[in-house]
Design a protein around this nucleic acid. Structure first.
Length: 358
DNA sequence: AAGTCGGGGAG
DNA sequence: CTCCCAGACTT
């Protein structure tokens, strides 16, 4: 009768599995706190395969914390385009400047100090302390929640903040015993990504299956426990294409909102008719638009709502004040449209516009 | 405690 | 379609 959870033997099994089976990741080469930091921020809620090309491009352009700190925010955002959660990029930039001004460009090496930096929460602070500075602080991410819940048979709701604390404290001992905090932490996460997956975990290949509560009780599909989320509403949005031979009118989104500071075709949500949006556009930009032909509908799903975007041609009647700097609107040359930072819907529209010409 | 914030891969 | 990913931050 073996006990469940991370005994010394289970920890050793995990480590030797990790050393053999770990995937190649560029940030595991030429390891530094800077590289670990950038990779960990990019990896927040984002898969490894998605991050790799972004990481390589980013590191090539911003080779150290000083280059990042001295860059313009728009430039940083440009290298983040398509990766999502853009506040990560803004915090990353802000953090680089804090490091340069307050820390002589050098990362503090303790969990508590790292936690104070912008964009670094419990997970990322633990990841940097353990991976870059070899200290025994456990990481708790989605993979760890899952592996831990199954291994120990823990039915606590992982969406509750208290559960994170419990798991963290529960893993303090094993990560210390392991002697290799970096490998222990990365090992659990790699196990969660490759073997102990959300659906249909591959227990036959799992190095710690004989220490696993869920495996021996056949309850893998019940763990981890997570409160069901409420289903998402769909919003109707009207978007207007106002153009001449050379230019298209773009509007900048509010800084602190969804897709903050991104440029897009002017438009917003409506309840009944798309004309409702024209009033708002006039207030915000001074442009008096008239709705033209309906061109196409674009759909996109965000985390907690869906968008049904109706694209219309538009003309403007009356005189508009342009170029005063008072309005967050800009005529952009069609050839330069992709120079602005775009979200997914805008990129789809851009693709459509190019296609429409041909 | 609940809501906000992206985009994409897997099934 | 649904789920969830090497989460952090605001309200």
């Amino acid at each position: 009768m073996t006990t469940h959870g991370f005994s010394g033997a289970a920890v050793r099994a995990l480590l030797s599995w990790f050393e053999k089976e770990q995937r190649y990741m560029p940030w595991r080469e030429q390891k530094s706190a800077y590289r670990t930091w950038i990779s960990e921020i990019m990896l927040q809620q984002t898969r490894v395969d998605t991050v790799i090309p972004y990481f390589n491009r980013f590191m090539k352009h911003f080779t150290d914390v000083y280059e990042l700190a001295n860059a313009k925010q728009d430039e940083v955002l440009k290298f983040w385009e398509g990766l999502g959660y853009y506040s990560r990029a803004r915090k990353l930039h802000e953090c680089a400047q804090v490091l340069v001004t307050d820390y002589h460009g050098v990362f503090p090496e303790t969990y508590e100090e790292l936690l104070k930096l912008p964009g670094l929460g419990p997970y990322t602070a633990a990841a940097i302390t353990s991976i870059a500075f070899a200290q025994p602080v456990p990481v708790v991410d989605g993979n760890v929640f899952r592996v831990h819940a199954r291994l120990y048979g823990d039915y606590d709701d992982i969406s509750k903040p208290n559960t994170r604390k419990k798991v963290f404290e529960h893993l303090l001992e094993p990560v210390k015993v392991s002697k290799h905090p970096s490998y222990f932490n990365q090992g659990i996460m790699e196990l969660g990504a490759l073997i102990c997956t959300p659906q249909n975990p591959n227990c036959t290949k799992c190095p710690v299956s004989k220490f696993c509560y869920a495996k021996s009780n056949k309850v893998q599909s019940e763990l981890p426990v997570k409160k069901p989320k409420t289903k998402v509403p769909e919003k109707d949005v009207a978007i207007f294409l106002l153009e001449d031979e050379k230019y298209v009118l773009l509007q900048q989104r509010h800084e602190k909102k969804l897709l903050g500071k991104m440029w897009e075709l002017p438009g917003s949500e409506f309840k009944d008719k798309p004309e409702e949006v024209l009033v708002k556009i006039k207030e915000q930009t001074g442009f008096e638009l008239k709705v033209g032909k309906k061109l196409k509908i674009f759909r996109h799903a965000y985390s907690h709502f869906k968008v049904k975007a109706h694209l219309y041609e538009a003309t403007h009647c009356g005189t508009a004040i342009v170029g005063t700097g008072l309005h967050d609107v800009q005529w952009v040359e069609k050839s330069n449209l992709s120079e602005k930072a775009f979200g997914k819907i805008a990129l789809d529209i851009l693709k459509y516009l190019k296609l429409r010409k041909a």
